[in-house]
Design a protein around this nucleic acid. Sequence first.
DNA 1: CTCGACGCCTGGACGC
DNA 2: TGCGTCCAGGCGTCGA
Length: 283
Amino acid sequence: MMRFLTTAYALFMPELPEVEVTRLSFADRIQGAHISHAQLGKPLRWPLGCEPQSLVDQQVLGVRRRGKYLLLDLSAGLLLMHLGMSGSVTFSIHTPPAGKHDHFDLVTNLGTLRLHDPRRFGAVVFAPSQEHASAQKLLGRLGVEPLGDFFNAVLFHQALKLRKTAIKQVLLAGEVVVGVGNIYASEALFLAGIRPTTRAMRLSRPRSDRLHAAICDVLARAVAKGGSTLKDFSNAQGESGYFQLEAMVYDRAGLPCKICSNPIKSMRQGQRSTFFCAICQKP
DNA sequence: CTCGACGCCTGGACGC
DNA sequence: TGCGTCCAGGCGTCGA
């Protein structure tokens, strides 16, 4: 994790907590703003879905989050933003010239919302409404919010019983629960003592309960930590600091487990790196 | 239907 | 120094 903390903030992988903290960093300040200009840079993951000009004169009614999507409610539609794996968003009174990796500006009377994304896996998509096909294509299959009221142990276990795939893949797929990316999936499974390769349907109710609790715990702690990071940045013009909990297993291959000292193992699952402790995490 | 593989994109690490 | 190669990954898409 230190490697990430010492490298460029822009290469930090935004998972749900980072997106939520980003939202918190500007949601209040942009509410009610009138859009005066919208500008695209290089192509992002998906096309905007409208001419930037058609965003002008709309009002920003509020900012919500669904999974890793930021949802800006506009007076005539919905603007979906995704940070991909290298994106960051700032909301600032000032509008400095766009840099090499600044690919979207939403200029309003209250400030400029800017997406900075070196790898351009991120996206900004406009949909006439949340129910519109262009929005539902992205939001329609998302699972429950892990920090919301509907993420409960009973339903979680029921959903897992229907999946034959490895539990880590199920978490990453986002169809049962959203927002758990590659880092927090490894971390939550470690906290729950579950081997990432264990098939979801094989998890007993008690183990499923432990995973449910671990997901809630790791994400809530990360949001809290991000919130405190945010406070430190609040005198700046809304830069959202990236942050991460100190990892127990992620990116620690070969290093001693912080619980049992056995070397952390790494493997590939579905083209993704997975880290686990073979002693602390049972199949 | 489910499941796994692929590709998009760039910067940093690393080898020669 | 400079170049080539590999790697990181969210998630839609495609093929089996």
